[in-house]
Amino acid sequence: MSYAPRLVSGVEVTPILDAVGPMGKALRRPLGELFRGGGAAVWEGWDEEWVLHFRCYLVRDGRGRVVLVDAGIGGADSPAASWAPAPGGLITELAGHGVAPGDVDTVVLTHLHSDHASGAVTEGVPAFPNARHVIQRAEIEWIEDGGPNPIQQRVLRPLTTLIDAVDGEATLLPGVRVLPAPGHTPGHQVVEIGEVTLTGDLVVHPVQVANPAITYAHDEDPALAVRTRRAVLDGVRARRGAIGTSHFAAPFTELADPGE
């Protein structure tokens, strides 16, 4: 499904659908096991089969500079192929918007889980050869400290000369910045563009917007993830803004201030 770009403070934000599919067999568990808190009633009306949309975001400013937020699943041999619907269609989808891999100036990896980072490398070489790849240093250290693993060897190593490791907040373009949002992973980050925040896996299911205290089984630090989720969502609501999510069926979710 194609969505029209959203203009935010002079910056064009376009959702790019990389793939759609149910959680793979390796991770398929009842929703009540994957998410904790809120009670059984929270799942009334939800299909037990959780279908994920795997989404990246194309960000372009008035000067033609191109930022890609997350790189998707990657090819058929991706580290995500054991559970996600590989191969992803990111490169083809970008071409449909007039963007070639060499046109991308910056790639932001919200975190280094395989469905967000694997598409940054194709057949052992960087998929976006002219782009700096912005990753929180804490995220890189977390992966490196875990010993040899597919993301370390097949994503970080080929990107070594292109990585821009940041500590905390960083401005990508005027009006576009990354902010640390730890919990899902130690170096998870979000991208703020005016009133829109691109959330990565800060929220992975819509129930977490209604109740940020609901935890996710694949969060590295669930308690920290809850605190971070509350803080970010409260900030978006205060700006009467919206979130752009990676895995919801619709790319943007408008957040109203509950006090209004």
Score class of each variant (00 low, 15 high):
His113Thr: 12
Gly124Glu: 00
Ala242Cys: 04
Thr215Glu: 12
Leu112Gly: 06
His188Lys: 07
Gly168His: 12
Gly75Val: 09
Asp219Val: 08
Ala231Thr: 09
Asp164Ala: 15
Glu192Cys: 07
Val190Trp: 01
Pro22His: 10
Val196Gln: 05
Tyr57Leu: 06
Asp18Phe: 05
Ala80Ser: 15
Gly119Lys: 14
Leu255Arg: 04
Gly200Thr: 06
Glu141Tyr: 05
Asp257Trp: 04
Glu141Val: 14
Asp164Asn: 12
Gly244Pro: 03
Gly10Val: 13
Val99Cys: 01
Asp61Thr: 13
Ile243Asn: 00
Ile16Asp: 01
His97Gln: 06
Pro158Asn: 13
Gly24Cys: 12
Val203Gln: 04
Ala165Lys: 04
Arg65Pro: 15
Trp46Asn: 02
Ile135Met: 08
Pro22Gly: 06
Asp103Glu: 08
Ala225Lys: 00
Arg63Phe: 03
Ala100Pro: 02
Arg227Gln: 15
Arg230Pro: 01
Ile16Glu: 00
Val207Asn: 08
Val204Met: 04
Asp70Ile: 03
Val67Leu: 01
Ser82Phe: 04
Leu198Thr: 02
Thr122Trp: 14
Gly32Met: 03
Ser114Lys: 13
Arg157Met: 14
His116Asp: 08
Thr253Met: 07
Gly39Arg: 08
Thr106Ala: 13
Glu141Gln: 11
Tyr3Gln: 11
Asp145Val: 04
Arg229Phe: 04
Gln189Arg: 06
His184Gln: 04
Leu90Cys: 02
Ile243Gly: 00
Pro150Lys: 01
Arg227Met: 08
Gly64Ala: 02
Trp50Asn: 07
Trp43Ile: 07
Leu255His: 06
Val178Pro: 03
Leu255Asn: 05
Glu260Trp: 12
Trp43Lys: 07
Phe252Arg: 08
Asp167Met: 10
Glu139Lys: 07
Gln153Cys: 11
Pro15Ile: 03
Gly62Pro: 05
Asp18Trp: 04
Arg240Glu: 10
Arg29Lys: 14
Arg36Gly: 10
Asp105Met: 13
Gly62Ile: 09
Asp115Met: 06
Gly146Asp: 03
Leu172Thr: 13
Gly75Asp: 11
Val8His: 02
Gly74Gln: 11
Leu27Asn: 08
Arg29Met: 11
Ile163Ala: 07
Pro251Val: 08
Ala76Ser: 15
Phe35Thr: 14
His184Gly: 03
Lys25Trp: 10
Ala41Glu: 15
Arg132Gly: 08
Val42Arg: 12
His53Ile: 01
Ala120Asn: 10
Tyr57Gly: 05
Val13His: 00
Gly146His: 05
Ala80Asp: 12
Glu12Tyr: 05
Pro158Val: 15
Asp105Pro: 12
Arg154Val: 14
Gly45Arg: 09
Leu162Ala: 14
Thr110Ser: 09
Thr122Glu: 14
Glu33Arg: 12
Gly98Asp: 01
Asp103Phe: 11
Leu198Trp: 04
Leu68Thr: 03
Trp83Gln: 06
Asn211Thr: 13
Val59Thr: 13
Trp43Phe: 14
Ala76Cys: 11
Arg137Asp: 14
Ala120Arg: 04
Asn130Thr: 15
Arg237Lys: 07
Gly21Ala: 11
Arg6Tyr: 10
Thr92Val: 11
Ala19Glu: 09
Leu34Ala: 11
Trp142Gln: 13
Leu17Glu: 12
His111Tyr: 04
Gly244Ser: 01
Arg240Lys: 09
Gly200Phe: 02
Leu173Asp: 10
Asp201Cys: 07
His184Pro: 02
Gly64Lys: 01
Gly124Ser: 00
Asp234Val: 00
